Simulated assay, not measured.
Amino acid sequence: MSTQHSTPATDSARPDAAAAYSQAKSEQEWREQLSPEEYHVLREAGTERPFTGEYNSTTTEGVYACRACGVELFRSETKFEAHCGWPSFYAPLAEDRVQYIQDDSLGRPRTEVRCASCGSHLGHVFEGEGYETPTDLRYCMNSISMTLVPAQD
């Protein structure tokens, strides 16, 4: 049975204060930890080019964790092929793992998804696109924002 969900509630402000997150670091510390490409996406809300990310087509079973802080975000069981060029999931591992921010940067409303632990940008969530998923949501994530931890046999 399919359960309908609506787009998650968003915070209207874009929190930038490192103290707001349990895994707070200065931007200098993030620059030292992350590659320039990772920093651009995770800390500056950039986007990797479509169809270039390492997890776009992967079917490996496991858990996708935040590349910046390691918090587990998505299970492979919720990943589906949306043919959009980025890994897509229909639900996070738990709602308290992600944060939703209203994003009007392209002149139209979108919902940004961040790691609730460190505030890193992961991607965006979209609703009502017609995919056959239990939630009617598509979490369109940047591969570079995550690390796949393969399931143990």
Results as ranks from 00 to 15, higher is better:
S145T: 08
T135P: 04
R31W: 05
M1I: 00
K79Y: 08
R43Y: 03
R97C: 07
R75S: 14
E44L: 12
L93W: 08
C66F: 06
G62A: 09
S105V: 00
H5G: 00
A13K: 13
E72L: 04
I101G: 02
Y64D: 05
R114S: 09
S26L: 11
T10Q: 06
F51D: 11
L137C: 10
M1F: 00
T60K: 10
G46S: 05
T59M: 06
H40N: 10
T111S: 02
N56M: 01
H5A: 02
A94V: 09
E81C: 01
M146A: 07
Q28Y: 06
T58P: 09
E72H: 15
W86E: 09
R67E: 14
T10R: 05
H121C: 05
E129L: 10
S2R: 01
E77D: 15
D96V: 04
P15I: 05
A19M: 04
Y90L: 01
T47N: 13
H83R: 15
C118S: 10
C69A: 09
A13T: 14
P92W: 15
M146P: 07
A94S: 14
A65R: 14
L122K: 02
E95Q: 11
S117W: 01
V98P: 11
A68C: 15
G46L: 05
E54P: 00
L137K: 03
H5P: 00
L42Q: 08
C84R: 01
G119M: 07
T52H: 06
L122S: 06
I101H: 03
L93N: 09
Q4W: 01
E48R: 01
M141F: 07
E127N: 04
Y100W: 14
W86K: 03
G128S: 03
A116R: 11
P87T: 09
I101P: 08
M1G: 09
E32V: 04
E27W: 09
D104E: 12
E44D: 13
L106W: 03
E37H: 08
L106A: 12
S2M: 01
N142L: 02
T78W: 07
S2P: 00
